[in-house]
């Protein structure tokens, strides 16, 4: 995990990259879900506000809704993950982002996000 990511208490992360943001779920969340068997991602160009559901991830046991850590517009979706959801469980696979977004989020939207180290402390 990239230490500079910011996390939600609902286990999503956002990571600034080349003037856009990667959004995904934390390694802790993946571990808690167990075998991931289905991932549904939004369409490119769709927009979401902070805390809005943008994706669904299903493990063998249950479906989980995934929330936007900050507001933004989808500019890319990880089709590899959609086609092979089990890649999220693969420890040797690195590209686990779900969507890339453009965002004009202000400081208020970032205020309740946790540094990765604080998040780790929170969940462990």
């Amino acid at each position: 995990m990239d230490e500079s990511m910011l996390c939600t208490k609902t286990h999503e992360y956002v990571l600034e990259k080349d003037s856009a943001y990667d959004v995904g779920i934390t390694d802790y969340a993946i571990n808690q879900l167990g075998d991931i068997v289905f991932v549904e991602l939004p369409e490119i160009d769709s927009t979401f506000s902070k805390n809005e559901v943008f994706a669904t991830i299903e493990s063998v046991k249950a479906a989980s809704e995934i929330y936007m850590p900050i507001s933004g517009k989808v500019i890319a979706v990880n089709e590899d993950i959609v086609n092979s959801p089990e890649l999220l469980n693969d420890e040797n696979y690195a590209d686990k982002w779900l969507i890339k977004i453009e965002s004009n989020a202000d400081q208020v939207e970032f205020a309740d996000l946790l540094d990765y180290s604080d998040y780790k402390e929170e969940v462990e």
Partner: peptide, 8 residues
Amino acid sequence: PVQYKSII
């Protein structure tokens, strides 16, 4: 125990 390693 719901799972030890992987349900699948």
